Simulated scan of single mutants.
Amino acid sequence: METLTTYRQRIFGLDVVRALAIILILCSHSTLLLFPESQSNIVKTIQFFGTIGVDLFFVLSGFLIGTILIKHIENNKTSFKDFANFWMRRWLRTLPNYYLVLLINIGLILLFNAELPNQLFKYFFFLQNLSQKQPDFFTESWSLTIEEFAYIVGPVLLIILGIFFKRLNKWSFLVVSLLIIASAIYHRFLFDFNVTVLPENFSWSKSLRKVVVFRLDSIYYGFLGAFFGFYYTNLWLRFRFVSFIIGVILFVVTHVYILINKLNPDSFSTFFNVYYLSLIAISIVLTFPMFSNWKSNKVLLKPITNISLWSYSIYLINYSIVLLSLQRYIQMSELSLIGKFGVLLLYLALTFVLSYLLFTFFEYPILKLRDSKRYKRWFKN
């Protein structure tokens, strides 16, 4: 099987980001499998790796999609048909896997005689967490909803600007990106300002971090990275080391501040509600000048590329399908440390094997069709 692009065509540093993101998520979910009731600070810290992993995905996705949209603008391909082609390519990348895994999750719920969520239909239209917390079903789908809306909102605003100003340019792209970022921050501020009586067992992650209207900015910080990387390439390259160091320092200082002040997102902290997610996204995008120019490493090239290629399948399969199924059949509290280690190996093995099969026999053929001459001829007509 050939990769979607040759190793030379792929950007190794961005594959590293994608691989790192999914590894952080797997580390986080592993603690939920092995120590579901643990209140250990170490376990809680590792569980928070998942937050960072998803934000890496968000910023990376914004960077890549933003670059595609910039090329649309520069090539004057900004008609509705051009953007429709963009959406079709995106949806062929994301929707088939999503709907297949959604149906598998529904099948597992019926198999286990569990209760399906109310308004299940929302999952088919990516509405399950638009402005409210998502039910505890197919929980990893929250991030896909945010991405799908990000892919729609930006181009729609660009189309509207194009109608008024006849021609789009780089400043149109920048204005749209900044408007969406400002809107998400504004909605988080309103959330923090208006919620005066907290519900019992308040969860910052479910009520804010995983809700579309509060999170679109994370992807659009990636758009800003694409803007500077494309239009100010010389500065992007010249200051890549400085930018990387600033990004790392900002990331570390942010978390040191949390530790020193003993901040807890579930205690309804204004810092977490309004500022934290933006600071993390900014710190990540500041590392992209370095990552986007990281040349391939012969030793790591193949494993990093493969993990990167499988990452979407891994993300969809590892939790609801593998982890929750294992938890139904295995009582982790009754196992020894060696037993838990064995379950961890089983969890990782099943995740990677099933993800490989999903990618190889379902995701990859669809992507090949999307990139085929037949598809391109069909869409030009």
Rank of each mutant, 00 (worst) to 15 (best):
L174A: 04
V175D: 09
V175K: 14
V176D: 04
S177R: 05
L179S: 09
I180D: 05
I181D: 01
A182Q: 03
S183C: 08
S183Y: 02
A184K: 00
A184W: 01
I185G: 06
I185D: 08
Y186H: 08
H187A: 09
R188Q: 02
R188D: 00
F189D: 01
F189S: 04
L190G: 03
F191S: 04
F191G: 00
D192S: 12
D192T: 00
D192M: 07
N194M: 13
V195F: 09
V197D: 10
V197C: 04
L198W: 10
L198H: 07
P199K: 08
P199V: 03
P199E: 11
E200N: 12
E200Q: 14
N201W: 10
N201M: 05
N201D: 12
F202K: 07
S203A: 07
W204G: 06
K206S: 08
S207L: 10
L208D: 04
L208G: 00
L208R: 00
R209T: 02
R209A: 14
R209H: 15
R209I: 03
V212W: 07
V212M: 09
V212S: 06
V213A: 02
F214N: 01
R215T: 01
L216A: 00
L216G: 00
D217K: 04
D217P: 01
D217G: 02
S218A: 15
I219W: 07
Y221M: 13
G222R: 12
G222F: 09
L224K: 00
L224G: 01
F227Y: 15
F227W: 08
F227E: 08
F228I: 03
F228V: 04
G229K: 03
G229A: 13
Y231I: 03
Y231T: 01
Y232C: 03
Y232R: 01
T233A: 13
W236G: 02
L237A: 10
F239L: 11
R240K: 15
R240Y: 11
R240T: 00
F241E: 12
V242T: 13
V242W: 14
V242E: 15
F244R: 04
F244S: 06
I245E: 05
I246M: 11
G247H: 06
I249M: 14
L250E: 06
L250R: 02
V252P: 02
H255S: 07
H255D: 05
V256D: 00
Y257A: 08
N261A: 06
N261H: 13
K262N: 14
K262D: 15
K262P: 02
L263Y: 06
L263S: 04
N264T: 07
N264R: 03
P265T: 01
P265V: 03
P265R: 03
D266P: 03
S269P: 01
T270I: 11
T270L: 11
F271E: 05
F272G: 02
V274F: 12
Y275N: 02
L277E: 13
S278M: 12
L279T: 05
A281S: 14
I282Q: 02
I282G: 00
I282V: 12
S283M: 10
S283C: 09
V285T: 08
V285Y: 08
T287M: 14
T287A: 11
F288S: 06
F288T: 06
P289Q: 11
P289T: 07
M290W: 15
M290Q: 07
S292L: 10
W294K: 10
K295H: 15
K295S: 12
